[in-house]
Design a protein around this nucleic acid. Structure first.
Length: 804
DNA sequence: ATAGGGTTAG
């Protein structure tokens, strides 16, 4: 018989029988309950040295001995002694129940309570807090509610502040804050504990606002916050990102002396708060001022350095640690490894193994994240596959690791496995947020839409911010700006990610003006921008050629928002400056920036030099790119195209040979167009489609309509190069994959709707021109996504303004 | 003799 059943039975007995019949019933029951208790694993029975063996017979000594046993967690000894004692004394039962409760033996505590009730011993106001705490500890909602009913029924205790406080904490622990609040509201008198419980209760369910409101109400009612109040309310401040309030509380703690010179827990909470706000120097000051530092304080300080990018300090702090590191130390240290690349993750992993910290679900999940974050997807996979236990978070992390490293099909397979769920796990909002970028990357809009359908059908909260944010991103990157906008509209609580996503969405579609307006809306709605916000905003300005605004925002980042520009912001600025054609100014900008230039920085310069036809700068930029990434295909191709346009055929051949020697192959250009239920993929000059004839017929008609002056191009080239090569190259653009896909799109999608094509490479100039004209003569909107941005061709113009 | 607290992965 389980403790639960016996509890339910006892409750029934208690309600239905009068005292005499209760006594009658218990004789058999008692032994059953005792067996149950004794059969549980207890700490090894130890002989406790009693104060004076000769006084064992005196009642008070026995009682004292029982208390000593119970307080030391020696419950078997306590039980043996208890059996010899007078069982009508409520106090002795309370000692036993308390003993079980504080040893974490919640089921035994409840069984003992049942036994007590069945024996006819009256429970008192000291009994119930333990019983209720045990019900909470064992997560027995129904049993707890039964006790609640009993307490009300008995009428003596439902106004007892201790009993009520334990009920509040019971409901809070089981996630029923509203029930907790009801008990709290109906309490005839409340003490500081009641208030503290509710403040932390609201925080636990993520309602930081209510938590803070309640805290203020508590102050209004004249309660002085104690250390527990401070700790809870600081949590709420962090959660709500209200740094001013947090600092005020810190001041209050100092003033009121709650901090009491050296309360480790309070100080650690304050330390953690500054860490989360990114105020490293404040955190350091608090940490240095601590006289006693336990392992938790060290962990928080290490985590503070690690999460705020102070990698070296994180490791130094780890070395200086005066306490033995634990699992959490390593979990906190790991984010620092991501910046230092994979090697250190391996080292921490090895250290964890040597110290015997593994297996450990959270640490393993953190390792998966870190391996995934520094491109070691195989190592992440190895950790995941060897995990003894996996929870939903582990699955989500592995899916995210695949997605981050472009292994979208592996990600999808794993997500599918999770979805089909031979495991009993159910995908949550994070699962969807992890898999959705895979659809944005390489899978189809149709499938992304399908997944959206599943999410809606599976009744995930339609206003879930995390899911909607990823949907905004997915739709935008799949080319459907309209649906991205709709999803954004559905977000009730728009967070910084929501705004960043929609700003980036309009940016990559070439509507930078809209992005800038959205940024103003964001500021107006009092959401603070972060680094990514400015990355999106600068992307918008550079893609749409908004030079002055770009500079303005770049300068305001630090000045008005205190955000230091990162390398990603410099990349967009090089793009922006490069657009003006002032390449020497772009070079100076690169020289002056506080970072070592990355391949992407030089890539931006390369793109600018291509767009302004400056071969000298292009050669320099390409050289820099190849120093860092010798296998950067795009770089070779771009340079080759520039040489060939200039008629420098020896150089074209030189690059070709170079590519061959480096083992770099030109990326095969692919264009994808989706029709009802099917995805069609085209390569250049592709003739494999079932409707090839029709497609080429359409291409022919459209080409005539747009009256493409192919000859002028061929002529200008033919003056400079041999006949033989000319033949092979001259007309190839006419059958570029993007045109084939567009033609199929024109005849297989609804008239009036836009044709959507996705390309894995940059569109060539001639195709861009072709598409502009096609949009005019066919009166259709054509949207083409290339490797970087979306081109909206409409009525002869493109949203990119002819710069890409 | 009674209730309330701090650190970790997404």
């Amino acid at each position: 018989m389980s403790a639960t059943t016996s509890f339910a039975q006892c409750s029934r007995i208690y309600y239905n029988c009068d005292a005499s019949s209760q006594n009658h019933q218990t004789t058999g029951k008692r032994n059953e309950n005792r067996n149950l208790v004794i059969n549980r694993r207890f700490p090894k029975p130890a002989r406790l040295i009693l104060h004076d063996p000769s006084k064992l017979n005196e009642p008070s000594s026995l009682t004292r001995a029982l208390r000593d046993f119970a307080d030391s967690g020696l419950m078997e000894d306590a039980l043996n002694l208890f059996d010899e004692m007078n069982k009508t004394d409520t106090f002795l039962w309370n000692v036993m129940i308390k003993g079980f409760t504080s040893s974490g033996l919640y089921h035994e505590a409840l069984s003992f309570y049942c036994r007590m009730v069945c024996t006819g011993v009256k429970a008192d106001s000291f009994t119930y807090p333990f019983v209720i705490k045990s019900a909470a500890g064992a997560s027995l909602l129904l049993e707890g509610k039964t006790v609640h009913a009993t307490v009300i029924k008995l009428g003596f205790f439902d106004s007892d502040v201790y009993v009520c406080n334990s009920l509040v904490s019971f409901y809070k622990k089981l996630g029923c804050v509203w029930d907790a609040e009801k008990v709290f509201d109906e309490m005839p008198e409340r003490d500081i504990v009641s208030w503290n419980s509710m403040v932390s209760g609201f925080l636990a369910v993520g309602d930081g606002v209510r938590s803070l409101v309640l805290f203020k109400e508590m102050l209004r009612c004249g309660f002085e916050p104690d250390r527990f109040s401070i700790i809870s309310v600081l949590g709420a401040c962090c959660y709500m990102d209200w740094s001013r309030m947090g600092k005020e509380i810190h001041c209050y703690a100092i003033r009121s002396g709650v901090q009491a010179g050296d309360d480790v827990m309070v100080l650690t909470s304050i330390l953690d708060m500054y860490s989360r706000y990114g105020e490293v120097s404040y955190a350091e000051r608090v940490f240095k001022g601590m006289r006693n530092r336990n392992v938790v304080a060290w962990n928080v300080m290490i985590g503070c350095y690690a999460r705020n990018g102070r990698v070296v300090d994180a490791f130094l702090c780890f070395q200086k640690m005066s306490e033995q590191p634990d699992v959490i130390t390593l979990i906190n240290l790991l984010p620092a490894c991501e910046i230092l690349e994979g090697l250190t993750v391996h080292e921490v992993h090895g250290y964890a193994t040597r110290r015997g910290f593994l297996p450990h679900v959270v640490l393993e999940t953190a390792l998966i994240d870190m391996y995934g974050g520094c491109g070691k997807v195989k190592s992440a996979e190895a950790v995941f596959n060897r995990m003894a236990q996996k929870n939903l978070v582990s699955w989500n992390s592995m899916v995210a690791a695949y997605v981050q490293n472009g292994e979208n099909y592996s990600a999808l397979a794993l997500f599918q496995e999770l979805w089909d769920s031979s495991s009993s796990l159910v995908p949550d909002s994070t699962s969807f947020a992890s898999i959705l970028p895979a659809y944005a990357e390489s899978l189809s809009l149709r499938e992304g839409r399908q997944l959206h359908g599943y999410i809606v059908k599976a009744r995930y909260d339609g206003s879930n911010t995390i899911i909607l944010n990823s949907l905004v991103h997915m739709y935008a990157m799949c080319g459907d700006l309209e649906d991205a906008r709709k999803c954004f509209g559905q977000v009730v609580f728009k967070d910084v990610v929501s705004w960043n996503s929609i700003i980036m969405a309009y940016a990559v579609h070439g509507f930078g003006r809209v992005s800038v307006c959205l940024f103003s809306d964001m500021i107006a709605s009092r959401v603070s921008p972060n680094k990514s916000t400015f990355a999106s905003l600068l992307a918008a300005c550079s893609i749409s050629g908004m030079i002055d605004e770009g500079w303005e925002h770049f300068n305001s980042m630090k000045r008005e928002y205190g955000i230091d520009p990162g390398i990603e912001h410099y990349v967009y600025m090089v793009d922006l400056i490069g657009r003006t054609g002032n390449l020497s100014s772009a070079m100076r900008f690169i020289e002056d920036m506080p970072f070592v230039p990355t391949a992407r920085i030089w890539g931006s310069l390369l793109k600018a030099s291509r767009n302004h036809n400056d071969i000298t700068v292009a050669e320099f930029a390409a050289e820099q790119v190849l120093k860092i990434e010798h296998d950067n295909t795009g770089c070779y191709v771009l340079l080759m195209n520039m040489y060939s346009e200039a008629g420098r055929w020896e150089d074209v051949n030189r690059i070709k040979l170079l590519m061959k020697s480096q083992g770099v192959a030109k990326t095969t250009s692919r264009s994808i167009v989706e029709t009802r239920g099917r995805t069609h993929v085209f390569t250049n000059g592709d003739r494999s489609h079932v409707e090839t004839n029709k497609i080429y017929e359409v291409l022919d008609i459209v080409s005539r309509m747009v009256d493409e002056e192919e000859d002028s191009y061929v002529h200008c080239v033919s003056k400079m190069r041999p006949e033989t090569l000319l033949k092979r190259r001259s007309n190839s653009h006419r059958e570029h994959s993007v045109r084939l896909a567009t033609c199929l799109g024109l005849i297989s999608t609804e008239t009036g709707s836009a044709v959507l094509v996705r390309n894995n490479t940059r569109i060539c100039r001639r195709c861009h021109e072709f598409l502009e004209k096609t949009s005019k003569v066919t009166r259709r909107e054509i949207i083409v996504g290339d490797s970087k941005i979306f081109h909206h061709f409409s009525n002869g113009c493109c949203s990119c303004g002819n710069y890409w």
